[in-house]
Every structure is written in C-alpha cells, then in structure tokens.
Design a protein around this nucleic acid. Structure first.
Length: 470
RNA sequence: GCGCCUCUAGCUCAAUUUGGCAGAGCAACGGACUCUUAAUCCGCAGGUUCUGGGUUCGAGUCCCAGGGGGCGCACCA
C-alpha cells in the first residue's frame, strides 16, 4: 500500500495563475481571497524558520509557494521536501511583503518522491549524453529543452491545422513494407514470422499516398515516422518525421506555394514572425521565396557553366577543373547533382526553391513540360539544408515502369539504395493518376530552424544513441 | 568505418608549463532563522578520476588497448 494518493483532481496551471491579470493589481502583503489548487514539482526550497518559500513548477510554468507555520498543515514536513518531489497544494493566492505573487499553502499532499536529483539548480545538466539518455531529467533541469519540445508540438499542430484548412485528409499507411520504395535509401529489415518473410521499415510514404489519390483521395497527407538505415550525424537520425502531401489537379508550382504556406505559416504561428535568426544569422522565411534553377545556382556559386546538355564527359572535366574528385558512377544527371550538392547546396542560406532536376536522379517525377532531360521537381533549401522535396508526380504507368526498371537494374548492379519495381504501385497507376503535385517536408529540420537548434538531437526527444554496455 | 576532441563527487567545474596528499560551489545530511528570490549562516559527509593493462619511487596527469559521447569525413541521389 502506498501512502500516495491515486488522484489529485481540480488543479489549475501554475503558469496560468502566475500570469492571471486578476492578480496583477494585488499589492505587497495583500491577499486575493481566491483559493486555487495546483500540482507539480518542488524545484526550489527556501525554508526560513517559521515561514517558508518554495517554487512549484508544472508544465505551464511556475509559481512561488508561501507557507506559515501557523496556517499551513504539516509545516515542518513541507520544509523538508526534497527538490523534485511532486506535491499537490491548495491555498489562497497572495502577494508576499516583498512583492512576489504566491500561493499560501493551507493543505497539501505528497504525490511522489524524487529519489534522484535534477542537477545543479543554477546550471542544470549540461552533459549532452545525460541530456539525451535521460531526457526526463533534461526536461526538468533545462528550461530551454522543455521550451524546444513544446515548440515542436506546436509546429506540428500548426502544419496539421493548415493542411486540414485546405481540405487535406490525414491518413495512415503501412510502416512495414514487403518491398521498400519511394526514396533512394537503404532500409531497415525485419522479419515477419507468420508470413515467413522479410519486411522493410518504410523509407517513404510516397507510393501508398499516390495510390490513395488514384483511389479518389484528392488531397491527402501523412505525417509520420520514416526509417533509413544510414549513419548518425547532427542532421541525420535513422528515424525521423516526414510529412508527405499530395494534391490532385495540381503541379509543382502549386507545391511551391504550399511549402511556403506551411513553413512560413508555422513560423508565424509559433514565433509570431517569419524573420528569424538561425545560428547567429538572419533568415527571412517571408514568402515568396526565391525561385532559381539548379543550374543557375550552380553557376552563381562556382562561376562555371554546368548544364545537362554538355554531357557527362564535359561535366566531369569541368568538375575536375573546380577541384572536385567525383566518385559517383552514372550519367550527366548524377554528375550534375553531385557537383551541386558538393559546391552549392551547403552554402545556400535561402530559403530558396531550387528547381528543375535531372530526370536521371528523379525516378518518380514527371518530365518537365518544356525542358527535355529534366523533371518538374524542386527542393527547398534553407540554412544549407534540404527542407523539402517536391514534384509534379509522374502519372504515366508505362514511363513509370521504364524508370523503375532502370532503378532495379542499378539495384541489381549493387546500388543498395536504388529502387525496385513495385507492381502494386504500377498497377494503381494503370487505373489512372490524375495530374498531381506532391511534396515531402522534413519536419525535424523545420523544427531545428524554428527552434534555433544546431543538431537534430536537440529536437528529438529520444535521439538514436549506441546502447550503453554494462 | 576513419580522424580529431572529450569522460574527475548526484550536478557544474578545479587540480601549477613539464607526474608529487583529488578540491570547490550547488544538491544531500545535521542545526539556526517570521518575507525569501541561485536565500543566508554554522556543521558534517561525499570518489573504481569511464574500464583494463603498462612506464615510474610515485599516474587524474604519460603510453597501449577497449567503452560512451561530441565534431568532422564517409554514408545520406
């Protein structure tokens, strides 16, 4: 039997009481006459003989507790609480003689003990390993961490609200895929015992979502976890949150506007502005964002003209002249993209909408309506990082089969990240995919930008880490 | 996978270039205090210096191996 209560109903937020305008006019030493009930952790304790002060913190904020030996039940016991103990209190809202709005404790209950501490009361917990492995400690010890994750939640809510507001329907598609598809990445493999078959954790939601557009879901999105079997870095986690949205009767130019609407909209929803500072540098997300072709940006950055038309040999020659050692195999499109990613993308502060990618590196995007060899695709780059990837979707089942078979040949030749042929997807296209625009947005990276985080681990509650050995 | 950096009390950090008794603040614990704000004051404890070897009269410090973490590279079209 535990001495702790099973419930403690009727609480209001500490932050709400602290900022309630009803108490703003309360003079030092004055009582409000209103009694409130709160619960949270004791994060500071300043017993002082026959009176005592403490800070009570819950997830809405904190407020000072005030107690007098003459009016507070079990006063001595209250002053001996450990920092971090959970308590529930009831008392009158007062302002102390020194002017601090407080709740004068009349009755209280111990809800749970904290047997371990929450770090240095001034500096918190700085050790990043502890902060990642024991996030529950980090959230109490470091106010900025708590703020970041509350911000993340609001960003995700903002994006959902804006998509819902435009008539998009949220769906959930399988995470376990019999064959991986929709992106160029190595998958995690798992085994399904009942089917005696290996399955793959999804590397994208693309193919199922397009099948839903075929099924008549004209505006559809999924916001969920994607898994890629890749290395860890400050910008990569093996599981991350992706948004993919598909809109029938739209093309990639519509997706550009949607990207601006969602990202700039989230900024203004959660920060109240689209002009921010990231890593000490100004970043203005106010739409419209600059639009430029990949080749324009390449030439701006390198001072060298590099186009698909000049062919693989010439592109490789010019890349060498720029001092690049390319190890990629592939044609002109692969080389062009590689040079762009090595020389230009990391220095694009943006935000900029980078358009018109080589068809060779975009097996799911529709041919450009006026530029042979290119597809109607763009990426949004901000702070040197890719935030979004979008295209006019390839609708032609015959062309799509050709592209996937080419991918499958690459896969068979040893490229583990190349796609394989997904017959279910191709059959769906045979039923007719209308003109459709699609976009994928890396939610973690958007959160990083808006939260000012330099590492993706700062915006993931439980980032991937090596298991500790005994 | 490779390179560089890093690991000291529960937390935050010291420990004389160039090896010489491992320390402080906070937290905890005991006490004082009727308005504190990182409360203050008195007292008392607190260590496998990441692990295992080695060099040395002597290692937190130097060397080797291993582990965790950070950053960079690779990977991530």
């Amino acid at each position: 039997m535990s001495a702790f209560p099973y419930r403690f109903p009727g609480t209001v937020g500490a932050g709400a009481v602290a900022s309630d305008p009803a108490y703003a006019g309360l003079a030092p030493g004055e009582s409000s006459g209103s009694v409130v009930t709160l619960a949270g952790r004791v994060m500071r304790s300043r017993p002082q003989g026959r009176v005592a002060f403490a800070q009570l913190r819950d997830w809405t904020g904190s407020i000072q507790l005030f107690a007098q030996a003459t009016s507070c039940e079990r006063f001595e016991e209250l002053t001996r609480l450990a920092l971090g103990d959970w308590i529930g209190v009831t008392g009158e809202v007062v302002r102390t003689k020194r002017g601090e709005l407080s709740v004068e404790v009349a009755t209280w209950s111990l809800l749970a003990e904290a047997r371990l501490g929450f770090g240095d009361k001034w500096r918190g917990v700085q050790d990043v390993e502890t902060r990642y492995r024991q996030r529950e400690v980090d959230l109490w010890a470091n106010e900025s961490s708590r703020a970041t994750f509350l911000l993340r939640s609001r960003i995700v809510a903002s994006i959902r609200r804006r998509l819902d507001g435009r008539g998009f329907v949220e769906v959930e598609t399988p995470i376990l895929h019999p064959i991986p598809g929709g992106a160029h990445a190595r998958p995690f493999v798992t085994h399904y015992n009942a089917l005696h078959a290996d399955f793959y954790l999804r590397i994208a939601t693309e193919l199922h979502l397009k099948r839903l557009v075929v099924g008549g879901f004209e505006r559809v999105y999924e916001l969920g976890r994607i898994f890629r079997n890749e290395g860890l870095s400050p910008r990569h986690n093996p599981e991350f949150t992706g948004l993919e949205a598909y809109q029938a009767y739209a093309d990639y130019t519509d997706m550009m506007e949607l990207a601006e609407h969602l990202v700039a909209g989230a900024a203004s929803d959660v920060l109240g502005t689209t002009q921010l500072t990231y890593q000490g540098r100004e970043l203005d997300l106010t739409p419209p964002w600059r639009r430029a072709t990949l080749e324009e940006l390449l030439e701006e950055r390198t001072g060298t003209e590099l186009t698909l038309d000049m062919g693989e040999a010439e592109l490789r020659r010019r890349a060498s002249a720029l001092g690049l050692e390319l190890e990629v195999r592939g044609g002109a499109g692969v080389v062009l993209l590689e040079v762009y990613e090595k020389t230009t993308e990391p220095d694009l502060w943006g935000p900029v909408i980078v358009t018109d990618y080589p068809k060779e590196v975009s097996p799911l995007a529709r041919d450009h309506r006026s530029r042979p060899g290119y597809v109607e695709r763009f990426e949004v780059v901000a702070a040197g990082r890719e935030l979004a990837n979008a295209f006019s979707e390839l609708c032609d089942p015959v062309e799509q089969r050709r592209r996937l078979e080419a991918q499958a040949a690459e896969h068979a030749a040893g490229d583990e990240e190349a796609m394989v042929v997904d017959e279910d997807f191709l059959r769906a296209l045979e039923h007719g995919l209308p003109p459709t625009g699609g976009i994928g947005i890396g939610i973690d990276r958007v959160v990083m930008l808006l939260a000012g985080a330099s590492s993706i681990r700062e915006v993931l509650l439980f980032p991937a880490l090596r298991p500790e050995q005994a």
